[in-house]
């Protein structure tokens, strides 16, 4: 009898086992699945990169071949083009899993909804934001951009885009039950992008001034720190709000 009882206890602790390791494995499994789905379902990431490139190449046609002018506006231009391109990518972030019932199964797993949002946002960053950042040096050449400034621009992309992705997840999570949510997400999300954009451009301008003056880059200058903070806050708010939005729709 005692032996049977201890057996029972073991079988129950097996279900009660929810170690950080199992959450981490579930997180990685979800990221891997989303990466596979993204690569299997055609060139979604590539299309976004092409859109990004087209927006950037259209600008010289609109402004004329004024190289100093292009050089001056290049960082802001690339940032705005990156934001526009990334806005196109969020409408399917949770929609597919929500519509086909996968989300119900995911919720019964070891990850919280916040963890699910974070995992899907990671995969989304790798398949959408990372290709955009990789394409930036080529486009910077078209805009006659200074190499030192380009390096710093890419640094601001790397710091800022995780925040942008999670803010986009917020828009996607809140509008997951809505058909053709693309424009709604853009309207929800764009105002929240403003702090990241302002501090990123501020940091790049500061870097350009110090580079022009012959100084070295200061990564701890206030604009860069504010950009990091804005990205972190955006990310935190994005995860919590996206999970809340999904919870609302699952119970709807």
């Amino acid at each position: 009898m005692d032996e049977q009882d201890s057996q029972r206890h073991m079988s129950v602790t097996q279900w009660d086992m929810q170690s950080p390791a199992s959450s981490w494995r579930a997180f990685l499994a979800l990221v891997r699945r989303d990466l596979r789905l993204a690569t299997a379902q055609g060139a979604g990431g590539l299309q976004v990169v092409v859109f990004f490139a087209v927006v950037v190449t259209l600008i010289p046609f609109g402004l004329g071949p004024d190289l100093p002018l292009l050089q001056a506006i290049a960082p802001g231009l690339l940032w705005v083009a990156l934001i526009l391109a990334s806005l196109l990518t969020f409408d399917r972030l949770f929609q597919a899993d929500f519509e086909d019932g996968s989300l119900d199964g995911l919720v019964c797993g070891p990850l919280s909804l916040e963890g699910i949002v974070l995992a899907k946002a990671c995969a989304h960053w790798l398949t959408n934001a990372a290709p955009l950042i990789a394409a930036t040096p080529v486009l910077a050449l078209l805009l006659n951009m200074d190499m030192g400034v380009l390096g710093f621009l890419i640094l601001t992309f790397l710091v800022g885009t995780p925040g942008l992705t999670l803010i986009g997840a917020l828009g996607a999570g809140l509008s997951v039950g809505v058909r053709r949510a693309g424009i709604l997400i853009a309207l929800l999300v764009m105002p929240l992008y403003v702090p990241v954009l302002i501090f990123a451009i501020g940091a790049i301008e500061q870097a350009r001034r110090t580079l022009d003056a012959g100084g070295g880059l200061d990564l701890l200058e206030p604009n860069a720190l504010f950009l990091t903070a804005a990205s972190l806050v955006a990310g935190l708010v994005g995860v919590i709000a996206a999970a809340a939005g999904l919870r609302l729709h699952i119970s709807g």
Binding site: R36, D100, D104
Partner: peptide, 13 residues
Amino acid sequence: HYVGHLDGVKSAL
């Protein structure tokens, strides 16, 4: 284990 009326089968996998 919850299996709803939606299958959750991904067409690409």
